[in-house]
Structures are given as structure tokens and as C-alpha cells.
């Protein structure tokens, strides 16, 4: 086989404007990181809320929250993305306004909302598991001191639960970066999409794919290091589970 390796391809000027192919890659990386972080923030807030609702006394609230989790867990991410992007703007009020945004914004918003909801269901399960793993007496003790139920969650249950679930949350955080590349299917120019574009324009598939793959691995490594640091900081002295 005869393949002409040419790593300098990244420095060549891309067809659009005065950017190089390297600039394309970096802008793709930027979109991937921005999208993942925005969706992660959404997933954490929604996930904490739904996770809490699954543990509050009262059957109907718990059932509603459980249904939420099941819906987002049992439909493929790609199908959810297409539904957010192609279907909901057609059938929801406000869809017409959405379709008047510039395409890049539409893609980004749909991708963020999709990843945010998808991941929030997983975060919610972790939050619920974390809260349920706490001794039952913790809730009773907080209530007995006169804290209201929201205060009990805010000051006692959630701070402990989140400390316990740092490791599983880390893998969800990693997943959101990996899942973000599904969004290339609706035309969002994130890292994977830029990599494919590069293949189309340069006919140097190996260089491009190797670069994209390495960038994902780098993201993975950075997130892992950051979360390990967080885990160390969140450790509660003398508590079981802190090694």
C-alpha cells in the first residue's frame, strides 16, 4: 500500500478565508468544549432537581420524576437529537421563531438542550442513588433541628450526596464530551465534523482522524485529572468512602 503521509496538511490554508486546516480543527474543538460544558451545566441543575424529586415523600411527584428518567434513558441519543432539531420546532409554539435563528445557533441550541436533557436523566439517577445511600437518620436529624425540607436538601443531603457520587458523575461528564460528537449529524461543526470536512477537502484521512482521536483522548485526560482533583477536595475527613 502506498499512502503519502503529510502532517503539514494542517498548516495549509483552508478554502474558506485565510484560516488554515489547523484553525478548523481548533474551532471544532472550541465548539465541542463549549457545547459540552453548557450541556453539563444544564444536566447538573436539572439532574439534581429530578434526582431530589425522586426521593421526596409523595408518590405522584416521584412517579413523574421516574417517568422523566425513563423517557430520556430509553430513546437513542441520535433519535432524541433529531426530535429536538427536526420535530419540536415544527410542532411546538415558538418553532417558527426558532427556525429564524441563524443555522449555527439553531444547531447549537438543539444540541445543547438534547445533551442537557439526556445527561440530566443519568445525573438524576446518580443523585437519587447518592441521597438514598445516606443514613435515613440524616434527614430526620436535619428536620428535628427545625430545618425545612428544602433546607434539609440544600444544606445536609445534597452536599453529602454530591460528594459520594463524584466518581460516577466523572464518567457522565466524560460521556457528555463523547456524546457531543453525535451532534455532527445535524450539521453542527464540532470536532468530529471538522475532521470529516478535512478528509473531504484534503484527501488525507489518516492525519485528520488521528488528530481528532488524539484530541478526544486529550479532553478525556484533562477531565479525568480535574475530576480527580475535585474528588480529593470533596473528600470528607474520617467518613467511610474516603480513602
Amino acid at each position: 500500500m502506498s499512502y503519502h503521509w503529510n502532517w503539514s496538511v494542517f498548516l495549509q490554508p483552508a478554502p474558506s478565508g485565510d484560516a488554515t486546516y489547523l484553525d478548523w480543527m481548533l474551532s471544532g474543538l472550541q465548539v465541542t468544549v463549549a457545547l459540552s460544558l453548557a450541556a453539563w451545566a444544564m444536566a447538573l441543575i436539572l439532574g439534581a432537581l429530578i434526582g431530589v424529586l425522586r426521593t421526596v415523600p409523595g408518590k405522584s411527584i416521584g412517579r413523574g420524576a421516574a417517568a422523566y428518567v425513563e423517557v430520556f434513558r430509553n430513546i437513542p441519543l441520535l433519535a432524541q437529537l433529531f426530535i429536538w432539531y427536526f420535530v419540536l420546532p415544527e410542532i411546538l409554539p415558538g418553532g417558527t421563531e426558532f427556525k429564524q435563528l441563524n443555522p449555527m445557533a439553531q444547531q447549537f441550541v438543539a444540541a445543547m438542550v438534547c445533551l442537557g436533557f439526556f445527561t440530566s436523566a443519568r445525573v438524576a439517577e446518580q443523585v437519587r442513588a447518592g441521597i438514598e445511600s445516606l443514613p435515613r437518620g440524616q434527614r430526620a436529624a436535619a428536620l428535628a433541628l427545625g430545618l425545612t425540607t428544602p433546607q434539609t436538601y440544600r444544606y445536609v443531603l445534597l452536599p453529602m450526596a454530591f460528594r459520594i457520587i463524584v466518581p460516577p458523575l466523572t464518567s457522565e461528564f466524560l460521556n457528555i464530551f463523547k456524546n457531543s460528537c453525535v451532534c455532527s449529524t445535524i450539521g453542527l461543526l464540532e470536532l468530529t465534523a471538522q475532521g470529516r470536512q478535512l478528509v473531504d477537502y484534503t484527501a488525507q484521512p489518516y492525519e485528520s482522524f488521528i488528530a481528532v482521536t488524539l484530541l478526544y483522548m486529550a479532553i478525556n485526560a484533562v477531565v479525568m485529572l480535574l475530576m480527580r482533583e475535585l474528588e480529593k477536595r470533596a473528600r470528607v475527613p474520617g467518613h467511610i468512602g474516603s480513602r
Binding site: 463523547k178 468530529t192 489518516y206 482522524f209 483522548m217 485526560a221
Partner: peptide, 18 residues
């Protein structure tokens, strides 16, 4: 550490050609 979509693209675009 690599997204599934990337793995699939490797297998669709690069490995067959190889």
C-alpha cells in the same frame, strides 16, 4: 476515551479502504 461515532467513522471510512 474515544467517542463511538469516531470509532464507527474509523471503521467505515478508513479501515475498509485500508
Amino acid at each position: 476515551s474515544v467517542p463511538l461515532v469516531m470509532v464507527l467513522l474509523w471503521f467505515f471510512l478508513i479501515v475498509p479502504q485500508f
